[in-house]
Amino acid sequence: MKPSRFLRGKFPFITLIFFISAFGVMVLYAAHANIYFAVFIPCFLFVGSLLALLPEYFMRNRYYGNMREAMRQLDKTYLLSEVVETPDFYEGEVLYDALKAVCKSANDEIAKHRLVATEYREYIELWVHEIKTPIAVAKLICENTRSADLEAELDRIERFVEQALFYARSGNVENDYLIRRADLAELLHNTLKNGAKYLIAHRIRIQTKDLSHTVFTDPKWLSFILWQLIDNSVKYGCKNIAFSAVQNEHSVSLFIRDDGAGISEKDIGRVFDKGFTGENGRRFGRSTGLGLYLCRKLCSKLGLDISLESAPGEGVTVKLAFPVSEPA
């Protein structure tokens, strides 16, 4: 709090004291007091009253200064009332009580929603695990009765269920998230094997090159991300998908190149946005606007860098960069 700002707040008080002092001078003068006396006494009282403001200024300056500093340092300002001390002057107490009340109600509200969100996420996870048994049974029945078409549809259902699970988890990955050393080639091969039927049915040609690199990541999460990218390529009409990797000084980069429809210039900046489907979404009609959004969200949790290059008619190249050193 600057002194000038403080004084401006005290303007009515200072004006009043000034006029009283001036009035004092006039009264003393009218009473034929000594002229020096008549001026000196009121001036003395005036300056004295101003000086009396000093302790008040220092007290407030310290208190509000501390509060400002606490606000600057706090990352969640709704916790402010927890760190601010109780003031010992009246307006401060009113402010403090208001702050307490506001923070408490905000915190209660946050806690309530957090609980709702957590419970909902737990429900989704439970539900996904429950539904996996009937899906497994249905797939076995297909296998035993050789109904390939139905099985392909069940595979699709399974993928959507999986997506729901990862969406629920993407909010907080502390749960079930384990970075470990993995072989990129093996990871990718497993992903391709799991989706083999789908890719074969769509007659997709796969090329792999220089994939033997060690990366540090969570295999399950990465596999999900890779599948979202592969599925996108298939959805937007590709015939070939080429996987290659390059070792740089600080990272291993995985390139996934397809020869599908590509992305127009005006859409490319927004493909990672939630719910964005764009021109291809209208043309192919199977977009949810969730795949790439989830990919980027999960990538940032895993510490991976995801980027994408494309031009209409020239396919899409996605680059995934893995940090080389083991994360601390």
Binding site: H129, E130, K132, T133, I135, A136, K139, L140, E143, L154, E158, D176, L178, K193, N194, K220
Partner: peptide
């Protein structure tokens, strides 16, 4: 049907030889 790392680790620690999650690939 649980695909949590914890369940996998626990199963293997308790003496299971393999861990497969539902819905499994029957070939695998």
């Amino acid at each position: 049907s649980s695909d949590s790392e914890m369940d996998e680790l626990m199963s293997l620690n308790l003496g299971a030889d393999q861990f497969v999650t539902k819905p499994y690939n029957t070939r695998i």
